[in-house]
């Protein structure tokens, strides 16, 4: 089975795993009973030899790439459930995020417009500031008429 198929066939996979392991346990019990053990004794011995059934199942489930996705999906579901159970917390969290993102976006818009975007002229790199200087003051604005001269 491909890994993506496993995602959608969890119930089937689970049932097959159970069938497979139970097959083993029951065969072993039957074999021990055939050698003269009482069924109770055989069951006990098989359980000991096999190890924890649920642990084995969990290890089998851990195999493969689908496991990673399954875990993420479980986590997301769990998160959503928790949010639904605590509407107050959810509201605060969402408001915080909304304000944070909003403020950041607003400030970035200003910074972007003022500092980052090139000026809306052709050859913005060649825009300059002209000043005049005289003995009285080292730096003055240039009047338009002077500029034309």
């Amino acid at each position: 089975m491909r890994w993506y198929q496993r995602l959608f066939r969890r119930a089937r996979t689970e049932k097959q795993l159970d069938t497979e392991l139970r097959f083993h346990l029951e065969q072993q019990i039957a074999d021990y009973v055939a050698t003269g053990m009482t069924p109770k004794e055989a069951r006990r011995r098989v359980r000991l030899e096999f190890g924890g059934l649920d642990q084995v199942k969990e290890e089998c489930r851990d195999v493969g790439a689908a496991r990673f996705l399954e875990t993420i999906i479980q986590d997301v579901r769990y998160g959503l459930r928790q949010l639904r159970r605590n509407p107050g917390f959810t509201a605060v969290a969402i408001t915080t995020l909304a304000l944070g993102i909003g403020a950041t976006a607003a400030i970035f818009t200003v910074v972007n417009g003022v500092l980052l975007d090139p000026l809306p002229y052709p050859h913005p790199g060649r825009v300059m500031i002209l000043t005049e200087s005289s003995r009285k003051s080292p730096e003055m604005g240039v009047s338009y008429l002077n500029f034309l001269d």
Partner: peptide, 15 residues
């Protein structure tokens, strides 16, 4: 062999 440990190995090899 802890018999149960066979199965994770089988599933891994199949994977």
């Amino acid at each position: 062999l802890q018999q149960g440990s066979l199965y994770p190995a089988l599933h891994r090899l199949a994977d």
